[in-house]
């Protein structure tokens, strides 16, 4: 496989997408102007959400326990309640 293909097939991080589509792209005069409060701020919000889920998973791994999916979902819901953010994903 060429280097190009290897990199092309890598999963793209959201930050890379935001870095590109919010920051640049032709600023053609539009009728609706959607101004976005700095990409880093948007991304920081998102990181906090992701990080809180990740640290939950890691904490479980450190404890050496296997997390059952029910238990995980329950804790995820608790986390969602705590942060006031809906967390959904497809199974």
């Amino acid at each position: 496989m060429s280097l190009r293909e290897t990199i092309e097939n890598k999963e793209i991080a959201l930050i890379d997408i935001l870095d590109v589509i919010l920051d640049k792209g032709v600023a053609l005069k539009a009728d609706l102007v959607i101004s976005i409060a700095g990409v880093d701020l948007v991304y920081l919000d998102l990181r906090l959400l992701i990080a809180s889920v990740e640290s939950l998973v890691q904490a479980q791994q450190v404890n050496g326990k296997t997390v059952s999916s029910e238990q995980f979902n329950r804790e995820r819901e608790e986390l969602a309640d705590a942060t006031g953010q809906p967390i959904e994903w497809e199974n």
Binding site: V26, A27, D31, I34
Partner: peptide, 14 residues
């Protein structure tokens, strides 16, 4: 030429 996220027009003429 890619456009920025959420570039919206009210109608085709615009």
């Amino acid at each position: 030429i890619p456009l920025k996220f959420c570039t919206l027009y009210k109608n085709p003429d615009s």
